[in-house]
Computed example of a mutant assay.
Amino acid sequence: MTLIFPNPSRSFDSARGAVRFTGYDGMFEVPFLVEIAALGKSAAELRPSDGLEATCLSAFDTLRTSIYSAATRAYSEGRRGPLTLTSADIR
């Protein structure tokens, strides 16, 4: 099967310092996390004064194609969930 992302939902997980999203391999749900640091080149780019959650979700939306590509690579490499994507995975 192929990993797909039919649901554009994502959520901020402040406890883990990440954004959560889900992919699907057939009928199997595959959970992912993207570290906050992977969403911007520096803390200044994340503009925490604007509200960290909103800023991180906006950054996720901007990088969505790259994040989905990185998630697909990580999943195809055999990593299992929840898979955490870092800056090294996305860049």
Score class of each variant (00 low, 15 high):
residue 13 D to Q: 11
residue 78 G to V: 11
residue 47 R to L: 09
residue 85 L to N: 09
residue 20 R to W: 02
residue 63 L to H: 12
residue 1 M to A: 13
residue 32 F to T: 13
residue 38 A to T: 04
residue 36 I to F: 10
residue 7 N to D: 15
residue 24 Y to W: 15
residue 5 F to I: 10
residue 82 P to D: 12
residue 11 S to G: 13
residue 3 L to M: 12
residue 17 G to R: 11
residue 10 R to L: 08
residue 73 R to G: 01
residue 82 P to V: 10
residue 91 R to C: 05
residue 24 Y to Q: 13
residue 62 T to I: 12
residue 90 I to A: 00
residue 32 F to I: 14
residue 90 I to D: 03
residue 20 R to V: 11
residue 43 A to G: 05
residue 56 C to K: 06
residue 12 F to E: 03
residue 10 R to I: 07
residue 24 Y to G: 00
residue 32 F to K: 14
residue 58 S to D: 09
residue 33 L to Q: 06
residue 63 L to T: 02
residue 72 T to H: 05
residue 44 A to S: 12
residue 53 E to K: 14
residue 60 F to V: 11
residue 39 L to D: 08
residue 24 Y to D: 02
residue 44 A to T: 07
residue 30 V to E: 12
residue 45 E to L: 02
residue 74 A to L: 07
residue 83 L to N: 04
residue 76 S to E: 13
residue 29 E to K: 13
residue 19 V to K: 01
residue 19 V to R: 06
residue 75 Y to V: 01
residue 29 E to G: 04
residue 28 F to M: 12
residue 88 A to I: 07
residue 10 R to E: 08
residue 3 L to V: 13
residue 42 S to A: 09
residue 26 G to T: 03
residue 18 A to S: 15
residue 65 T to K: 05
residue 81 G to W: 06
residue 91 R to L: 08
residue 44 A to V: 03
residue 57 L to R: 06
residue 10 R to K: 15
residue 69 S to H: 01
residue 59 A to P: 00
residue 39 L to K: 03
residue 34 V to L: 03
residue 3 L to D: 07
residue 52 L to W: 11
residue 64 R to G: 00
residue 58 S to I: 00
residue 7 N to G: 01
residue 70 A to H: 04
residue 36 I to G: 01
residue 64 R to K: 12
residue 57 L to C: 10
residue 67 I to V: 13
residue 31 P to F: 10
residue 2 T to S: 15
residue 56 C to G: 02
residue 58 S to A: 14
residue 33 L to A: 03
residue 25 D to V: 08
residue 40 G to I: 00
residue 7 N to M: 03
residue 50 D to K: 06
residue 9 S to A: 15
residue 69 S to W: 00
residue 23 G to R: 09
residue 31 P to C: 07
residue 61 D to L: 07
residue 75 Y to W: 15
residue 76 S to Q: 14
residue 34 V to K: 02
residue 10 R to T: 09
residue 64 R to S: 10
residue 32 F to D: 13
residue 35 E to M: 11
residue 71 A to K: 04
residue 74 A to M: 05
residue 78 G to T: 09
residue 11 S to N: 05
residue 4 I to A: 13
residue 58 S to V: 01
residue 6 P to E: 09
